[in-house]
Design a protein around this nucleic acid. Structure first.
Lengths: 249, 249
DNA sequence: CGTACGGTTGACGAGTGTCAAGGGTAGTGG
DNA sequence: CCACTACCCTTGACACTCGTCAACCGTACG
């Protein structure tokens, strides 16, 4: 549970000229598919001047519930879980984010959820205040954030159906399909192999189940030859269509 | 199941001068607390020229799943439920909206949920294309939409905890508290009386339960003197604190 | 008066959670 | 190289919540 924070070295920000992209940003995925794609080179420079890198190890929390938020971030690699915890300790994961997603809730001082690494994760962080000023100046940036927020809302609503109306088997099948779709969006048949990005415990918190039930449903899907398991993480989807049936769509 | 569509009469759009607010908008709640508050009088005029009124009766659907969306709307009065339906008919309500909320999913051609009146509802509708052009021209409008979307995301995530981790009793108590909070946001003690905006069936679809379970939990809360019921709709919250306990926060 | 609809209540059983035991694997220290 | 430990996962037995099925009530409406 250690964390490293490395301030970007100055040489990385030397612009060759006014139009150059900061070197830290040059090969960054967020600059292409993420929100930074909306920024012009000067704006990128402005943001990168105040940005820093940070590495989170599994289980490390970036920010807890009710804490005041001083910074936002882009995910460079890894996986982050957003979760809520009831007073008695019951937990529900309400969002999973991967590179190059933006992390943060603009226009609120306080976090109403806890943000935790679900794997070793690299972040590019920047101060909240500076970022909000940049939003105000750059409609394109706000537009990207709106698009990401709308997508997250779509995802959240999709999960609500899973949480509210699906059986344990359907929940687990839905989760496997969601991961498979993330790995290989176009594939709808044939075998797909991947490593689960979450532990059983995280899967349980994500699906509103217990770890025992998750485990039982996985072995049931394996017994029924819909999937194959090697170790605890590696999954092979054997019968995509049957798995979709099992997911109740 | 009838619907009325009344094109706004021209007289309503006569601006007294360039800065006047269209008459249809003059007393509209959406102009103050809703997204139209971001619009200047000329922009408001531009939008109102293409807008129309529509009344939906209970159960009437504005737009179904998978349908292409031609128009957006503001809710003038009433209540609207956003729901998703699984192939076998299981239904989950993923959002409830009231005046002066904006209805629509910008930047997508297709609806991925069905939008249905949960009570007699009045809408102010306008064409999708025209509205998206207006968004592009007006950063203030996009900002309001972002704020509403962020709020809806917060709400969705709050519900995910309820759906995934709470018992039937906690779900029903949480729902009652949410309504009470909507009716009287500041009150945290004393009696609160209100009419449920949803039928038992809608409450069940909202909470991921069956109508029988909802009914049983309501009578249980009544038996325990946390609430009082008159008829099927009117609820009196008797012990706010105990109801919050029952909701598991 | 009959019917339709929304809601309540009861009996029962399936699906999950709870509790407990044990297996597998990686890391640590002897 | 081999115990030892810690952690994650699996499996089983059992209990309990909640869904299913069915009967019935009350009100609105024709």
């Amino acid at each position: 549970m250690k964390s490293q924070t490395a301030e970007r070295q100055d040489v990385h920000n030397q612009p060759a000229d006014g139009e150059a992209v900061p070197r830290v940003c040059a090969s960054c995925e967020s600059r292409h598919r993420g929100i930074c794609g909306a920024l012009s080179p000067p704006e990128l420079l402005r943001l990168s001047r105040t940005s820093g890198r940070r590495t989170l190890l599994y289980g490390e929390t970036l920010i807890g519930d009710e804490q005041s938020v001083q910074s936002f971030a882009n995910i460079l690699s890894g996986a982050v879980k957003l979760s809520k915890i009831l007073p008695d300790g019951r937990q529900q994961i309400v969002g999973l984010q991967f590179a190059p997603d933006f992390l943060g809730r603009p226009f609120h001082r306080e976090s109403h959820l806890s943000v935790e690494a679900a794997a070793t994760t690299q972040l590019c962080t920047f101060p909240r205040a500076e970022f909000e000023r940049l939003i105000a100046d750059s409609p394109g940036l706000e537009h990207r954030i709106l698009e990401q927020t709308l997508m997250q809302l779509d995802e959240a609503r999709e999960w609500m159906v899973t949480l509210g109306r699906k059986s344990a088997r359907e929940k687990v099948a839905s989760f496997l399909l969601a991961i498979a779709r993330y790995i290989d969006p176009d594939r709808t048949g044939g075998e797909i192999v991947f490593d689960l990005p979450l532990t059983r415990s995280d899967m349980a918190d994500f699906l509103g189940l217990t770890i025992e039930t998750v485990s039982r449903q996985l072995t049931a899907l394996k017994r029924d030859r819909l999937i194959q398991l090697e170790g605890t993480r590696r999954v092979t989807v054997l019968r995509h269509a049957m798995l979709e049936d099992a997911a109740g769509s």
